[in-house]
Design a protein around this nucleic acid. Structure first.
Lengths: 158, 158
DNA sequence: CTATATTCATGCAGTAGTGCATCTATTGTA
DNA sequence: TACAATAGATGCACTACTGCATGAATATAG
C-alpha cells in the first residue's frame, strides 16, 4: 500500500460516513413538513401505530419507552390535534385503544412519499448500471448491518 | 419486464430506504451515550463549534436557527455543565466568544469514534472486493445526492 | 460629544416532555 | 362478596426549548 493511502476498509468507512450524511439529509427533509404540525416524539407515535395497528395506551407507552402517565397526556394532545383517536376496546370498559386518524395516516404517508420521491430523484442521476451497482452494494451493507431495532431509531426520536 | 417485478430504479429506492434505516441506526447508537449528558440541541452546538471554532453568541444562535435570547440561556446551561466556555473577544468588551471545552470536545470525539468503529465492524463482515464495491457505490450515491446543508440535519437536531 | 447601532442578558410567558405518586374505575380472583 | 390486580387519568414538580419585549453595556457614526 502506498504510504499515506488508506486501506480498503478505512476508505469504505469514510465513504459510508459521507453517504450516511446524505441519507440523513433525505430523512430530515422528508419529515420537515410534518414537524411543522407535530413534534418528533408525536410523529414517532404515528409511525409506530401505522406499523402496529391500534394499541392500548400502556402498550404504546412501552413502545415509546415512556411512562404511562406521561403518555396519557401526549395522547390527549394528539387527540386534540386530530392525529389520534381513543376508542374503548370492545368487551372492556377499562382499556382504551389508541388508533391513528385518517389525518394522522395522511401525515405519515406524505413523509414516506416525500422520502421515496427524493431518493428516486437522486438515483435518477445515475445510469441503470450504476443504479444496479448501488442496489447491490446497499443490500450488502444492510445485510451486514443486520436488523435495526425500532428502539434504536427512537434515540433520535424517529 | 416480468409482470410484478420492479424496475431497476424502484429497486434502488427500496434498497436505499433499507440501508438508510441501518445507517440511521448507526448514527443513533453513536449519539446515545452523549444524549445521557446533553440534549440533542446541545450536542448540536458542540458539533457546530467543533467545525467552526469559537463563535459569537449571536452568530452561533443564527447557525442554530434560534433566537439570540434563547441561546444566551442555552449557552448558560452548557457553560454550567462544563461543555462550553465564554471568553470576551480580545479588543472588545461587548462581544462574547463561545468555545467548546476539552470536555465538550471529548464528547464529540467519542461519538465520532463510536460511529466509525461501528461502521468498521459492519464493513468487516464484507470481503475486500465487496468493500470496494460498497465504497464505489456510496461515493456515487453521495455525489448524486449533492451537498447536505447543515441546516437540513438541524431539522432532526443533529 | 451626542445619538444611534450593536451585542448580549434578562424578564415574562408559554409548550412539550419527563417522572413519581396517587386516585378512580374496572376486572379478575380467592 | 370482598380483596387484589390492572388500566388509565390526574396532581405535582421539574427541565429544556421557544419567542417576544426590554434593559444594560459597549462601540460606532455623525
Amino acid at each position: 500500500m502506498t504510504p499515506g493511502a488508506l486501506p480498503t476498509s478505512a476508505m469504505s468507512v469514510e465513504a459510508t460516513l459521507t453517504a450516511s450524511r446524505a441519507l440523513l439529509g433525505v430523512v430530515a427533509r422528508s419529515v420537515a413538513g410534518a414537524l411543522a404540525v407535530v413534534t418528533l416524539p408525536q410523529f414517532r407515535v404515528l409511525v409506530v401505530l401505522t406499523g402496529s395497528g391500534p394499541l392500548r395506551i400502556g402498550a404504546l407507552a412501552e413502545k415509546m419507552a415512556a411512562q404511562q402517565s406521561t403518555f396519557s397526556r401526549t395522547v390527549e394532545r394528539m387527540v386534540a390535534g386530530g392525529w389520534l383517536e381513543r376508542s374503548p376496546r370492545p368487551g372492556s370498559r377499562r382499556e382504551v385503544l389508541i388508533d391513528i386518524t385518517p389525518q394522522g395516516r395522511a401525515l405519515v404517508d406524505e413523509v414516506t412519499a416525500r422520502r421515496r420521491a427524493e431518493l428516486g430523484r437522486i438515483l435518477s442521476h445515475l445510469t441503470t448500471e450504476e443504479q444496479a451497482a448501488v442496489t447491490a452494494a446497499l443490500a450488502l451493507l444492510a445485510q451486514a448491518a443486520g436488523e435495526t431495532p425500532a428502539e434504536d431509531l427512537l434515540i433520535l426520536g424517529l
